Simulated scan of single mutants.
Amino acid sequence: MTALPKLSPPVEPARLWPENAAFMARTDLERLRLLGVGPANLDSITLHLLGVLGTRPTVRHRSGVTDEILTFLQDAGLMIAEDIRIYDSAEEAEAIADSLAAEGRPLFWPYPLRRGRFHESAHLVRTGLWGRLNSKAGLAGIAPARALAPRRIVPTATLGARLDHPVVVKAGGEEATGWGGTVRFCDTLERLLEVKAEFLSREISTCVVEQELPVERCWCANLAISEAGVVYLGAAEQMFSAPGCQSGSIIDPNTPLPPEGVDLAIEIGEAARAMGFIGVAGLDIGRIADGRLIVFDPNFRFNACTQQILLHHAATKRAGLTVSRSVVADVPLSVRSLIKRLQSAVEDGWFVPTRIVDRSILSNEKGKSILNGFVLGADRLDAEKNARLLDLLIS
């Protein structure tokens, strides 16, 4: 494939995380128990953010950084200049992290590393602070009251006494959550009791119960937080398949996060900065029917839409298009076959791949792959059409 012009993020990698920091995301299932993931996810999580981390060291599983995959992603325009440290086992990943920490490189990650394995001084963000900032119950400590839905924090065991209106129930502790894994919409008392039983079985002892609000649009606003201040990176509008169940993200210049939403995100980012947080964060902010902006969830880590946000401007400018729409798919094709089928879409400019994982290496599933990226379009309908076209190409 002919190499395409490079996709340069609008923010230098050093503005996202400190220059001396190293990306190490390999954790264990105990840390991710509320996300509902399996063993293969522990390694696939390490393969995000290719093309936006500059030259810093990264610890990545072999399944997503083979020569074949890296060549294709670079030809597609990703600027991959990292010092990639490849591992095959969890022990190898942690040994590499040990050496990076010994060099004085703080480790950053989306979810805390194995409990007790590394000294707290090895982390860019202390695990206790990470837990407090990402706790849905703790949101009121960093977000202004005007921007919160009516909510109460209760022991899970007390749920179900009555239900006067639809609510959204969320895990309220400091364990890692995400992907809607512990967010449940309840519009009947029977449903609320089902969620109570489920959460108790998963040892979720505290819940946030929020009044369901008429949300017109919801965005994930991304920030880069450093000792020098807070930089707004952009926002992706969230797409939902059901209440509280996100199915993807879209960036459309005709439906941006309103300026007051940007100000709100920065205000919360400043509160987190004052507590000592450094790195990239995302905040789920919705506009409800009366025009108010409400913060629903804190995500003090990189988000599923972070790479899309950082590459959107360069990709749309390169293609002469305006809208981007995320893609994530389990593909019944080998990496070689997948790349072959993607070449025309990439060369024509309407698809940008951001992650390809060889399942035969990741989990011994031969002839299968994982694909992340985003399609582009002249408008939302055109992007949706291209998403369907891509689905046909890789099916």
Rank of each mutant, 00 (worst) to 15 (best):
M1K: 03
L321D: 09
S8M: 06
E270F: 04
S247D: 13
F277S: 00
I86P: 00
P353H: 00
E198P: 00
G234H: 03
G248S: 02
L189S: 05
I294D: 01
I356K: 04
P243G: 06
L193C: 11
T66F: 13
V195I: 14
L392F: 13
E198K: 12
W350T: 11
G244H: 04
S226G: 15
L311T: 12
Q211P: 06
G261V: 03
R380P: 02
R359V: 06
D98S: 06
A274H: 09
G138W: 05
V154Y: 03
L53V: 09
E103H: 03
R146T: 07
S205G: 13
I153T: 13
E19F: 01
L159W: 04
T127N: 14
S334D: 09
G373Q: 07
A224P: 01
E198A: 14
I250G: 01
H313N: 08
V167E: 13
I86C: 03
N134S: 06
L32Q: 02
V280A: 07
V375A: 12
R105S: 11
I142P: 02
D67F: 08
H61V: 01
I356M: 04
E216F: 08
L362M: 07
E216C: 09
E227V: 03
V59I: 10
F118R: 05
A378M: 11
D330S: 15
A228F: 05
W17Q: 04
P243I: 10
L70M: 12
F23H: 10
S324R: 01
S89W: 01
F23Y: 13
C218W: 01
L78A: 02
G36F: 09
V280H: 03
P259G: 11
L78E: 01
I250R: 11
E68V: 05
L50P: 00
I361G: 06
Q74I: 09
H313T: 08
Y232E: 03
I84H: 05
G181N: 13
G320C: 08
K6C: 02
H61P: 06
G234I: 00
F351I: 11
V37R: 07
L133A: 06
A281F: 00
T316Y: 07
A319R: 10
P253R: 11
Q246P: 11
E174S: 11
M1Y: 08
V327A: 02
I285D: 00
V195C: 08
E384V: 03
